[in-house]
């Protein structure tokens, strides 16, 4: 998805993991994903650069659909659809 498309995405759940470094955001995402239904969208806020590579790999392995990410000033927003 392009950045413009991602900006218009309505997330069902936003997980703010800006306060933790690797593997904190992944742990936060794994916990939070249990709170949404299949097909719903989760948004992860992360200030950890590595997370931008880690979350897509996690999605790939576990089966969620990774939509993409874009950068804000000091963090990134990552989007995915629960399997």
């Amino acid at each position: 998805m392009t950045t413009e498309e991602l900006k218009n995405v309505k997330s069902n759940l936003v997980v703010d993991a800006r306060g933790t470094a690797c593997p904190g955001p992944l742990l936060a995402a794994k916990k939070a994903i249990a709170d949404i239904e299949s097909g719903e969208i989760m948004e992860i806020l992360s200030a950890d650069e590595g997370t931008k590579n880690d979350i897509p790999r996690w999605c790939e392995k576990v089966g969620h659909e990774y939509l993409g990410c874009f950068d804000e000033d000091s963090f990134s927003r990552l989007f995915l659809v629960k399997e």
């Binding site: 992944l26 995402a29 880690d54 392995k61």
Partner: peptide, 11 residues
């Protein structure tokens, strides 16, 4: 521990 946690988070 970091590798273990990442692995566990990835099921």
């Amino acid at each position: 521990m970091i590798i273990s946690l990442a692995a566990a988070a990835m099921d």
